[in-house]
Design a protein around this nucleic acid. Structure first.
Lengths: 214, 214
DNA sequence: ACGTGTGAACCGATTCACAGCA
DNA sequence: TGCTGTGAATCGGTTCACACGT
């Protein structure tokens, strides 16, 4: 995955690439073979120039005067993101939200497989939700190391989030998708992405009030 | 809510203000009365300067040489975001994810109240989850207009998301928190915020591979 | 002619540096 | 002195404009 230049790649570029990929999958289903930057961005709130610029960080892939081969581009983007092979993930915290996430079909579509769920509630341990079995948190380390798991979804209550996150990092986890409404403080080289519904709603409220104010 | 200048306020500033608010609530619980920009940002991955700059868009609120009164600042930020009074929201799509969101306690903490849930499944209509009753989608308009609801959480399957979103806008909804993995195309003045778990995981995978590569 | 790829120009957000108040 | 508030400088990302390949 050779970066072309020493130029730093914006995080937003990566996020958009994930978006392009989702869109391309749909276009492929609809039997598109070749598409242009204008076609793919038409329904994405992204300009064609932005799309081409995003791709340019990773080297040429389209044909001037023609466009992009859909298959080719999908594979290219999957390689960039590192999801061209199966990514094993674990889920910690099998409450209401955690259970819902276990059933979320979107993950498998993109080569993510939840290999285990973990909780400290004896009631839940041993059960199987969807196709995923729930284990005791004390078994996390074994799992993470045996299956070379890099990513964890954290869906525990806010009180235990920091503690569990530290434990995950100690077990070797490199990326955390955090659903707990708290800022995790971790020193190790871990990447954390927060998904915070309440914060999103507050942001939305602000902008809605702006719309209504004119 | 007088904006001080004609300067456009960055969206990230608004998102961070929501973050500050969450943090301040916690500090208040811990009996802090006065805090400085350094104290509040210490655990937030935000610099004190950034914090002060963010606040500066909305006029002075702290005391030089002293800091900020926690109570005062909380109220100030709530007013900025428009959540100083109760915000009524609805939820559409009572599947696994929708049900989990109904039970999410974080909303109420910030003055959001889900006044109704909607689904097209006759099995679900009439039931009460948590304290929220599930209604037929055909009753949405009545609700939205009667309760002056501005915000909707969209948790329907991806196939119906665009259709339902259009319906919501037609009913007068001004902001949508969209959990369906699709880019909604809406022309009216509506604000859409997307929460897409698969996209987040892909982004995370990219950065984790970067960490491991050095 | 058409559409990609990309350096350059532009624009907006963050960081810096400091004036001013308690 | 300590900390806020903010113009100015810097930095990074997006947009523009166009050279090049088909």
């Amino acid at each position: 995955m050779a970066k072309k230049k020493q130029v730093r790649i914006p995080q937003e570029t990566i996020r958009r690439i994930a978006l392009y990929l989702r869109s391309l999958r749909k276009l492929k289903e609809l039997k598109f073979n070749i598409i242009s930057s204008g076609q793919i961005t038409a329904y994405l709130n992204v300009s064609p120039e932005q799309f081409r610029k995003d791709l340019s960080y990773f080297g040429p892939v389209g044909k001037p005067g023609v466009g992009y081969r859909v298959d080719n581009l999908i594979h290219h983007l999957e390689r960039i993101l590192g999801i061209d092979r199966e990514c094993r993930i674990i889920l910690v915290g099998v409450g209401k939200l955690g259970s819902a996430l276990l059933a979320y079909p979107g993950f498998l579509n993109f080569n993510f497989r939840i290999v285990g769920a973990f909780d400290s509630d004896k009631e839940k341990i041993g059960k199987t939700l969807g196709k995923v079995r729930v284990y005791d948190v004390s078994e996390m380390k074994k799992f993470i190391q045996h299956d070379r798991v890099q990513l964890a979804i954290l869906a525990v209550p806010v009180e235990s989030a920091q503690h569990v996150a530290e434990k995950l990092v100690a077990c070797g986890i490199k990326g955390i998708l955090n659903f707990a409404p708290v800022n995790l403080n971790l020193t190790q080289p871990v990447r954390v992405l927060n998904v915070d519904m309440a914060t999103e709603l507050m942001t939305l409220t602000y902008f809605v009030n702006r719309i209504l104010a004119g």
